[in-house]
Design a binder for these strands. Sequence first.
DNA 1: ACTTTATGTCAGCCTTATTGACTTTCCAAG
DNA 2: CTTGGAAAGTCAATAAGGCTGACATAAAGT
Lengths: 167, 167
Amino acid sequence: MAEGGTAVAGGESLLFLTDEQLRKGIEAMFFAYRGFTADPDRILDGLHYGRAHHRALHFINRQPGLTVNRLLSVLGVTKQSLNRVLRTLIEDGLVESRVGRKDKRERHLYLTETGAALERKLSEAQRARMRAAYRAAGPQAVAGFRQVLEAMMDPELKRQYLMLTDD
Amino acid sequence: MAEGGTAVAGGESLLFLTDEQLRKGIEAMFFAYRGFTADPDRILDGLHYGRAHHRALHFINRQPGLTVNRLLSVLGVTKQSLNRVLRTLIEDGLVESRVGRKDKRERHLYLTETGAALERKLSEAQRARMRAAYRAAGPQAVAGFRQVLEAMMDPELKRQYLMLTDD
DNA sequence: ACTTTATGTCAGCCTTATTGACTTTCCAAG
DNA sequence: CTTGGAAAGTCAATAAGGCTGACATAAAGT
């Protein structure tokens, strides 16, 4: 069955897309995202943590010393939501909050050794799945995967994404 | 910066993947999924419905007459969870539940005209975003996108996915 | 008759999220 | 130096969406 079609050779401009094809893409996102979060969810299950804690650990690990406000905008949740998560992580000694030296209103967030250990465990599980998927699909597919995902982001989110990952 | 690398020509087998590259993929999924759900979420916001209702409408639309059990396993939630959602959809006249003719224990689910209208509105918003992303990325990228997503699914979910969409 | 399956429902609980209001701290500009 | 506003933290109330467990009913299948 024809999977699309372009009128011109290398053409991004004249892509014929049926609702059927788009629906497949939508469902692929739905099911793939379930797989994407499954492994960390399983790990977090026993502990009294959830996906929100995982996300916080991830981004603190990625940008050690980021402020609460930065984290807030990256995660796209409210201050109050994040605060509850952050409080438990700090109480449990996974995250450290240091008062800013320049601007003392700011709190800079860092993972403790324990926090870093959990983060590694979580992200290693997630990377393993991603690695397997990448290998199964091949490098060309991976490039396409990233292209489509980037095109799917809200402009503001994409800005954040690019800012932090800059190839 | 080199984006990966294969030791052999068309080789899926020897892909070198740094943690850095995998992390980018993970974050791309995270940010893209936010975009993916943003439009329907906005529509559902005013109404007293949420993402759960959207998912139910989507799959009922896709497989008119599917049973509650089938929907349950597709959505991966508990009977009680789904039931709450389904009940409001039925009460509000968006979904119709018909007793099975062959097996009278089963309830077959259908969208009413109103239900189909809302489903169209929601999925049209989502398709529009997907269409834009597909067009921006090009047909090659789209193929790769689908390949990686499929490789990322849990085997059981992938089975469900393929069963229903079979190219 | 007995068991199993499909569905529905009640009660209670948890996590994650929301909004709104308020405080403390502290930078910065007038 | 005062004042305005930003960064962070907190409290209270609310909601969605998920869960488990228990139980009920109807209808198959033996």
